[in-house]
């Protein structure tokens, strides 16, 4: 035996307990200590509200105490008053209407076109072979950079804004749609084929519903893209629209009005997200 090994038997691994009985330490009767706490997500809805209220209070306080000039950081109460003013004089609705119409038209155009192309690419390998390089080439272009070109093509009016938003929405929709089709379980398609379902029925009953989760997830992304693009487009050239409104307020140094416009934009984003959540819950309740 090499002498590096301990000679004393007590340092050796514990001997096997004698048959029928336990060896080693004896534990007196005691409750099992709970050790499964933490590392789980609990809902604390009030915590978010409280944090939000605290933030507003601090902000309000900072302004009231004169720690920040109200010109650069108007208190929340002033932003609220500005918003109320916008509602009262009708400018809120006028600008909101213009922005929503642009988002709606641009988004619908881009989405329809994108889904059409995405489906073709998802289903036909030729369409995919042609489409993938094109999409990869166009996708990274910051779409707002094309607005001047669209203005030259379509004029300064609405169509150039529709085109910018539509173009921005189109490519992500294409990608979301064809990857959604790729993710439709192959075994379901095999099953349908094995029962002799015709091509069109497989498309309608399996590929389309199977791709829906991925397509709807794409909507979330394209909706936020549409919101960004509408503001940017309106800042470049529009009479009405929340983007134009915010820009104008900035030029006039009306920071309270400016922030009220920003608030309206966030609420728009929130509203769109809520609508999409409802849609998902409705259409994807099977998940």
């Amino acid at each position: 035996m090499p002498d590096s090994l301990p000679a004393s038997p007590s340092a050796m691994p514990p001997a096997r307990p004698p048959a029928g009985g336990a060896a080693g330490r004896t534990v007196a009767a005691q409750p099992v200590r709970f050790r499964g706490g933490g590392f789980t997500v609990k809902r604390h809805g009030w915590a978010a509200l409280a944090a939000f209220a605290a933030l507003l209070a601090v902000w309000e306080g900072v302004s009231r105490l004169g720690l920040a000039s109200p010109l650069f950081l108007p208190p929340p109460s002033a932003v609220g008053r500005a918003l109320a003013g916008m509602v009262a004089d009708g400018s809120l609705w006028l600008n909101l209407k213009a922005s929503l119409a642009r988002i709606a038209v641009g988004w619908v155009l881009g989405t329809l076109g994108g889904m059409l192309v995405g489906f073709a690419m998802g289903i036909f390998s030729t369409a995919r072979a042609v489409g993938v390089p094109l999409v990869s080439a166009f996708f990274p272009i910051p779409k707002i950079a094309l607005l001047p070109l669209f203005i030259l093509w379509f004029g300064i009016g609405e169509p150039s804004k529709f085109a910018t938003i539509g173009f921005g929405v189109f490519f992500p929709t294409v990608i979301a749609t064809y990857s959604a089709i790729d993710s439709v379980p192959r075994n379901l398609i095999r099953m349908a084929q094995s029962f002799g379902l015709p091509w069109g029925a497989i498309l309608r009953s399996i590929v389309l519903p199977g791709a829906l989760p991925g397509i709807l997830a794409g909507f979330r992304i394209t909706a936020s893209i549409a919101l960004i693009l509408v503001v940017a487009a309106e800042m470049i050239g529009a009479e009405y629209g929340i983007g134009a409104f915010v820009l104008m307020a900035g030029n006039l140094m009306q920071t309270d009005t400016l922030l009220a416009g920003v608030l309206v934009l966030s609420l728009m984003g929130l509203a769109i997200g809520t609508v999409l959540s409802l849609l998902e819950r409705r259409l994807l309740n099977w998940r």
Binding site: N187, L188, R190, M191, A192, S194, F195, G196, L197, P198, A201, S205, I206, P209, G210, L212, L284, W286, R287
Partner: peptide, 26 residues
């Protein structure tokens, strides 16, 4: 010639009866 699958191959978005209807629809 009809298959029965290991992973069942049911459409998760269709109810039980509509899963059966699927193979009769055409």
């Amino acid at each position: 010639i009809t298959f029965i699958f290991q992973d069942f191959a049911l459409l998760p978005w269709r109810t039980v009866e509509d899963n059966i209807a699927l193979v009769l629809e055409h």
